[in-house]
Design a protein around this nucleic acid. Structure first.
Length: 187
DNA sequence: AGTTGGATGGTCT
DNA sequence: GACCATCCAACTG
């Protein structure tokens, strides 16, 4: 329900701004493949490559509105916590309780939370999200569902790119979804 | 309801 | 060695 676009090497907010590196090389490949990176030392973020080979563009999946598999998302979230820090049984119970009280709409409301909810990490980089046999798939909206209204706004957390790139309205969200993250969007 | 700061490690100059 | 495409707990009011 929420994404951001990163358009290429000229986009100073993009990981492609330094040219081809070992981290970003999947972006230089064909469209439809996952690019997962680590931010702030602890959160994974899922992107999908969007342009033909040689043009390093991608879309960051910022939020998903959970409709199904909600308990699995809570489980994945808890498991990831356990992988990060050692905790005694009491702390695990506390965390499980806290995570269980999070409303379903907020379980994947943020790029780090999307990966925590779906158990996505950097090892998923290079996965074909359009292949039926893939462990990570993104399907087209069903033909019988109408196109929802889309809100736009500047991308989040890219001030370092400078005013010109930071202000571009390349953040997109479905109007009215309770699962959209971060600051409110305009139209 | 809104603000602040700590956690934590890879990536690039 | 600086900087992050973030999240959450602990505070203020």
């Amino acid at each position: 329900v929420e994404v951001e676009a990163y358009i290429g090497e000229t986009d100073l907010a993009s990981h492609a701004r330094f040219g081809r590196t070992s981290r970003n090389q999947v972006m230089y490949g064909p469209a439809g493949y996952a690019y997962v990176y680590l931010v702030y030392g602890m959160h994974d973020c899922l992107n999908v490559v969007t342009e033909p080979p040689g043009r390093p563009a991608a879309v960051l999946i910022r939020a998903v509105e959970p409709l199904d598999g909600i308990e699995a998302m809570r489980g994945s979230r808890l498991e990831r916590l356990g992988r990060r820090k050692r905790r005694d049984n009491e702390a695990v119970v506390r965390d499980r309780d806290r995570i269980h009280r999070i409303p379903a709409a907020h379980l994947a409301s943020g790029p780090g939370l999307v990966c925590a909810a779906f158990d996505i990490d950097r090892s998923m980089t290079g996965v074909d999200v359009c292949a039926a046999a893939s462990p990570l798939r993104i399907d087209a909206r069903p033909a019988d569902e109408t196109q929802p209204a889309i809100l736009t706004g500047p991308r989040v957390g890219v001030g370092y790119a400078g005013e010109e790139w930071a202000r571009r309205p390349w953040r997109f969200a479905i109007a009215g979804s309770d699962s959209v993250s971060g600051p409110p969007l305009g139209d």
